[in-house]
Design a protein around this nucleic acid. Structure first.
Length: 226
DNA sequence: AACGCTATCAACCGCTCTCGC
DNA sequence: AGCGAGAGCGGTTGATAGCGT
């Protein structure tokens, strides 16, 4: 007991607006990272982890709050099918959404739909389109590279790209699943694929490539089958 | 109005990973 | 190679709002 330095008791529970303000100002001044220092020097009686979490999930700029759009829901379902519970990876594909938010959303809204009983029904009732997707997922990536994508410009012309060039583009930019798919709005009025099912496995492969460092081995193929 | 139940989600906890020494 | 500190991740908890009875 004697001579032992007591650690200051850290505060827990919900953050107050004034605490948010202190943390926000501190990070804006000193930058992100070194959360131990933030915890000690900001004056907040909060642990480093707590500060990091609060900043990452609520205070950092460009955080999107509120309802998930249908596109976001679809993307979560799709990515979860590919990646499993790798929430940070999934959240990385949803601009402005955090891993915690995606995880919560999955557990409260989507997981119910995918409960074991529902899953059986889903598999048994696969539509032709879904089956085609699964089938395509097994085709080697290079088989797709010869296929073409058509994009209509605002001037009414139709541009055709090889998927190879699209994949190259996706590799060069830090591809988000829903953003680089679309060309710049000012250039194109609409986009359509000859067969978008055919295109999607490439996207899946890219996600898998990033997540697991591979995209075509048996392990990955198995993961596509629930 | 009061109570109990359920859904939601912010926050915590424990573990793993990464990096510097 | 081994160790420790800091950061990150995913699972879980708990407060509370909302709803039904």
């Amino acid at each position: 007991m004697e001579g032992k330095e007591l650690k200051p008791r850290m505060k827990k529970g919900f953050w107050k607006p004034e605490e948010d303000l202190i943390l926000k100002k501190y990070v804006e001044t000193h930058g992100e990272g070194n959360w131990t220092a933030v915890s000690k020097k900001s004056g907040l009686m909060r642990g480093a982890k707590s500060c990091r979490l609060r900043w990452k999930n609520y205070l950092r700029p460009n955080i999107k709050r509120g309802m998930m759009s249908d596109d976001e829901k679809d993307l979560i379902i799709r990515l979860h099918k590919l990646l499993g519970n790798r929430w940070s990876l999934i959240a990385g594909r949803l601009p402005g959404r955090t891993d915690n938010e995606v995880k919560n959303y999955w557990n409260t809204h989507l997981n119910k739909r995918n409960s074991p009983r529902d899953k059986t029904v889903h598999v048994n009732s696969q539509t032709e389109k879904e089956q085609q997707f699964l089938l395509n997922s097994h085709v080697k990536q290079q088989d797709h590279l010869e296929k073409q994508i058509s994009v209509s410009t605002k001037g009414g012309e139709i541009d055709t790209f090889t998927i190879d060039s699209w994949v190259q583009n996706l590799k060069n930019v830090d591809y988000g699943i829903n953003i680089p798919l679309l060309p710049p709005e000012e250039e194109y009025s609409s986009i359509f694929f000859h067969n978008d099912d055919m295109f999607m496995p490439i996207l899946d492969n890219l996600v898998l490539l990033e997540a697991f460092g591979t995209n075509g081995d048996e392990t990955m193929q198995e993961s596509l089958f629930f």
